[in-house]
């Protein structure tokens, strides 16, 4: 192996260690029996690993329901927020109009307050819309709070696409919307993928609104469900850690599949477009 190759894998290894170490510790904890959780001196590995926590989690708690709800909410949120944000960022990046800067700033102002402060009025709003306790309330709230950041992110990516490309397409008879569809979106796909991940994870982990707008187990999402494992005098470490491990899996697998679109950016597009 060449020296540079060795360094490359060495750094990959370092990176993974850094990223994974706490997660591996969570995993080890999840297969420890209760007796081995609190020990001094510390025991690193369980003497008899058990997957009881995972079994209990699936069988005795509504975790799968939570997961289903989380998936529904996250997928719809991604769809709506991405659609809305792409349109808005196209407007911000490709048009000149009065009030552009203040308008783009208004987007950000919505994010400048702690979410907890907006909880009561939003709760009332959702009640008036009669969508409390349904995934809609969460889809609506998550989309709204994801759009400003996503718009800014995507705008940044669109800006880096040379305008000459759209002009060329327009000369070929493309409308502005046609340019968006055929030129901009394919070229900005790395940014759009990154934004997709951002929205998905935001919705997946969002806790406060999920807690406020849902009261029924049927509509609960994972983060709220996990909190119920921490009681007044009992903390169900087994369920918490098992739940935490499972929670990450769908997103990670999903990303492993879509990450290849990260590179289908300008290189190919510039040649064919």
């Amino acid at each position: 192996m060449k020296k540079s190759e060795f360094f490359k894998y060495f750094f990959v290894f370092l990176w993974l260690t850094f990223i994974l170490a706490p997660y591996i510790w969570i995993f080890i904890t999840s297969i420890k029996s209760y007796d081995e959780l609190y020990t001094f001196p510390l025991k690193y590995l369980p003497s008899k690993p058990t997957f009881e926590g995972y079994k209990l989690l699936i069988e005795t708690t509504p975790f799968l329901t939570y997961m289903k709800n989380s998936i529904i909410v996250a997928i719809f949120t991604v769809t709506i927020a991405l659609f809305v944000a792409i349109l808005a960022s196209y407007s911000f990046s490709r048009f000149n109009f009065k009030g552009k800067t203040p308008l783009s700033f208004v987007f950000l102002v919505t994010q400048m307050f702690p979410a907890i402060l907006l909880a009561i009025p939003l709760f009332l709003l959702m009640r008036n819309l009669k969508i409390l306790n349904t995934p809609f309330s969460l889809i609506l709230a998550h989309s709204t709070f994801a759009v400003p950041f996503t718009t800014w992110m995507i705008t940044g990516f669109l800006k880096s696409i040379p305008r000459e490309l759209d002009e060329a397409a327009q000369i070929d008879g493309c409308t502005k919307l046609g340019v968006l569809r055929h030129i901009i979106i394919p070229l900005a796909s790395p940014g759009i993928i990154a934004a997709t991940i951002y929205i998905f994870i935001y919705s997946w982990n969002e806790f406060l609104y999920a807690l406020t707008f849902t009261s029924d187990i049927k509509a609960r999402t994972i983060p709220v469900g996990l909190h119920t494992f921490m009681g007044e005098y009992i903390i169900r470490w087994d369920l918490l850690t098992a739940g935490g491990i499972i929670t990450g899996l769908p997103v990670i697998i999903f990303f492993m599949f879509i990450q290849r679109y990260l590179i289908k950016g300008l290189t190919k597009g510039a040649i064919t477009g």
């Binding site: 709760f123 009640r127 807690l211 009261s215 029924d216 909190h227 921490m230």
Partner: peptide, 20 residues
């Protein structure tokens, strides 16, 4: 409705404040 204890008080305050 089963509510995590750490948020129980806040959620009750919210609910009373919102009349629900």
């Amino acid at each position: 409705e089963l509510i995590p204890l750490s948020q129980y008080y806040d959620k009750l305050v919210n609910a009373v404040g919102a009349g629900v």
